[in-house]
Deep mutational scan, measured.
Amino acid sequence: MALNTPQITPTKKITVRAIGEELPRGDYQRCPQCDMLFSLPEINSHQSAYCPRCQAKIRDGRDWSLTRLAAMAFTMLLLMPFAWGEPLLHIWLLGIRIDANVMQGIWQMTKQGDAITGSMVFFCVIGAPLILVTSIAYLWFGNRLGMNLRPVLLMLERLKEWVMLDIYLVGIGVASIKVQDYAHIQAGVGLFSFVALVILTTVTLSHLNVEELWERFYPQRPATRRDEKLRVCLGCHFTGYPDQRGRCPRCHIPLRLRRRHSLQKCWAALLASIVLLLPANLLPISIIYLNGGRQEDTILSGIMSLASSNIAVAGIVFIASILVPFTKVIVMFTLLLSIHFKCQQGLRTRILLLRMVTWIGRWSMLDLFVISLTMSLINRDQILAFTMGPAAFYFGAAVILTILAVEWLDSRLLWDAHESGNARFDD
C-alpha cells in the first residue's frame, strides 16, 4: 500500500549564491595573561575582544583620537594649579581661619623630617597626573615632529594605576569627618577644581587605549598563520617573532617567553612588605597634641575612634588600611606557593584573586592621604596640633611594595603550573 505524501511548494523562490571570495581570516594573537594562541577576527570600533580561555580583555573598544586626548590633557593642565594650590577646605580653629590644600599637606610631611613619605604622596597625587598630561601632550606634538614615541607609550600603561586623584578625593571626605570634632569646616574653591580634575582624569584614563596608539604610530604586520613560536610582548602586546637582537619589532624591548626574574622580584617585594606591615600596624601612625597632652593612634585605634562619629567612614578606612593590605599579602603568598608547588586545582579562583588584588591594591594609600591633609588643617603649635607617627613611612612603603609585587608577577606562570593543553579552566 503506497502512502500519498503531499508536496510542499515554497511560496518564495530560494536563491543560492556561491561564495565568490575567501572568507576573511583572523590574525593570530597570544593572550598576555595566559599565553593562549588564538585567531582574533577583525574588530570594529566600539567592540571589545576577550581571550577565549581566561576571559582577559585583549582589545578595548573604547578609543579616543589623539586630538581629543590632547584637549583633555590641556584642560587638566589648566585645572591643576587651582586643584593643588587653592584651598580645598576652610576650618575655623580657636577663632582663626585655616586653609588646607594639597601642596601644603605634602610640605608639612616633608617639613617634619619625613621627606620619603611626603614624596610618596607627591608622586601619586601630583607627579603621576602631571606625567600623564605631559605624556599625552608629548605624543600629540611628537607625532607631528617625527619624534620617538616608544618610551612614552611604554610608560603610559604602567602609569595608570599610580594616578590616585580619586583616592585622594575620598581622603578629603575622611579628613573632614575627623577634623569636624575640633573645628567648623567649609569647602574651599580649590575643592571644585579638584573634583573637576578627578572627573576629567577618570574619563581620560578610561578612554586612553595605549594598544590602539601603538597600532597608529607603529603598525606591524600581524601573524596570519598559526605558529607556536609566536611570542607576545608584555610592553606593547604585539604578537610576532623577535628581531635579530631578540627584541620586539614594535617597542624594541627584549621579547622573552616569560617575564625575567618574575618570581624572585615578586618574592622579594612580598617578604619586604610583610616585614614592614608589622611596625606599620604596631607603631603610632598619627599623633595629636591637645592642650599640651599627647595622644597617639595606631591604624586600628584611629579607626575605632573614627567609628564613634561615623561608622560608615570608619568601615571604608578599615577596608583600605587593614583589610586590603593583608588580603593582598595572603593572596600573593598563596599564588606564589601554588606556582612553586605546581598546583593544578582552583586555577579559576587564583586568576580571579590576582585580578582582584590588581584592582584594589592602590586604595591602601588612602590613610597616607588623610594624614597629609589633616596635617595641613590642624597645626596650632602646642594648643592643638596633628602630626604623623613613625608607622606612616612603614605603611606607605608596604603598600608600594605590594603594588610592585602584583605588577611583577607574570600571570602566565600560573598556567605553566597548571596542566598543559587546557582550553578551559575551572575549579
Score class of each variant (00 low, 15 high):
61 G>A: 09
427 D>Y: 13
34 C>R: 00
180 Q>P: 00
243 D>G: 12
198 V>P: 07
363 W>M: 02
389 G>T: 00
234 L>G: 12
272 A>H: 02
389 G>D: 01
174 V>A: 14
21 E>N: 07
315 G>A: 15
260 R>F: 10
403 I>E: 00
401 L>I: 12
127 G>A: 11
300 L>S: 03
283 L>Q: 11
189 V>G: 06
183 A>M: 02
38 F>D: 03
310 N>W: 02
82 F>T: 10
187 A>N: 09
171 G>R: 00
382 Q>E: 03
180 Q>M: 12
18 A>T: 07
192 F>P: 06
310 N>C: 05
171 G>L: 00
263 L>Q: 12
59 R>E: 05
131 I>Q: 02
96 I>T: 03
144 R>T: 10
212 E>I: 15
298 T>R: 10
193 S>N: 03
9 T>D: 09
426 D>P: 02
219 P>M: 10
238 F>K: 08
358 T>F: 11
19 I>C: 06
231 R>K: 11
225 R>A: 14
272 A>K: 00
260 R>C: 09
196 A>D: 09
176 S>M: 12
213 L>V: 08
47 Q>L: 04
64 W>R: 05
398 A>W: 09
392 A>Q: 03
101 N>F: 02
389 G>L: 00
262 S>Y: 02
358 T>E: 12
201 T>S: 09
418 H>G: 14
394 Y>V: 01
299 I>K: 00
338 S>V: 15
267 W>R: 09
165 L>Q: 14
190 G>A: 04
212 E>H: 15
248 C>L: 00
159 L>H: 03
226 R>Q: 13
262 S>E: 07
1 M>K: 01
102 V>T: 05
55 Q>N: 09
334 T>W: 13
151 P>A: 07
66 L>S: 07
424 R>C: 07
82 F>I: 06
189 V>E: 08
73 A>F: 02
79 L>W: 13
213 L>N: 15
386 F>K: 00
27 D>S: 11
258 R>K: 08
325 P>C: 04
322 I>D: 13
310 N>S: 13
98 I>R: 04
354 L>G: 14
364 S>C: 02
335 L>Q: 11
359 W>K: 13
53 R>G: 09
266 C>Q: 05
294 R>T: 04
167 I>E: 08
15 T>S: 07
44 N>D: 06
107 W>L: 10
403 I>F: 03
342 K>M: 10
114 D>K: 04
322 I>P: 03
257 L>C: 13
78 L>S: 13
2 A>D: 08
316 I>K: 01
217 F>P: 11
346 G>I: 14
42 E>A: 06
311 I>W: 15
281 N>T: 11
187 A>Q: 08
356 M>R: 08
176 S>I: 09
112 Q>S: 11
289 Y>P: 01
193 S>K: 05
171 G>H: 02
253 I>M: 04
383 I>L: 11
80 M>A: 07
315 G>W: 15
343 C>D: 12
99 D>Y: 04
409 L>Q: 06
24 P>D: 07
401 L>H: 08
50 Y>P: 01
411 S>A: 10
226 R>F: 14
92 W>N: 02
338 S>K: 12
90 H>F: 11
125 V>Y: 06
413 L>W: 11
175 A>I: 02
18 A>M: 07
305 S>G: 12
120 M>K: 01
309 S>H: 10
308 S>E: 12
163 V>Q: 06
28 Y>R: 11
234 L>A: 13
302 G>L: 01
419 E>A: 02
163 V>R: 02
264 Q>F: 03
350 R>T: 09
219 P>I: 11
175 A>V: 03
12 K>N: 06
376 S>K: 07
357 V>P: 02
371 I>Q: 00
238 F>M: 10
8 I>V: 06
330 I>R: 01
294 R>K: 09
186 Q>I: 13
415 W>T: 10
216 R>F: 12
51 C>A: 00
34 C>P: 00
122 F>C: 10
293 G>L: 11
63 D>N: 14
23 L>F: 06
272 A>I: 03
157 E>N: 15
41 P>H: 07
21 E>F: 05
298 T>G: 06
45 S>T: 06
360 I>L: 12
271 L>T: 13
296 E>T: 12
33 Q>A: 08
73 A>D: 06
52 P>N: 06
391 A>T: 02
105 G>S: 02
414 L>H: 08
129 P>S: 06
325 P>S: 08
304 M>T: 11
133 V>W: 03
409 L>G: 04
117 T>V: 06
64 W>Y: 05
244 Q>W: 15
137 A>W: 15
251 C>E: 00
309 S>G: 13
118 G>Y: 01
273 S>N: 12
263 L>E: 13
20 G>Q: 06
16 V>W: 07
194 F>S: 12
295 Q>H: 15
125 V>R: 00
99 D>K: 10
209 N>I: 11
276 L>Q: 11
209 N>G: 15
97 R>C: 04
255 L>T: 05
250 R>M: 13
218 Y>K: 11
273 S>P: 05
417 A>H: 07
150 R>L: 03
89 L>G: 01
9 T>I: 05
240 G>W: 12
250 R>K: 11
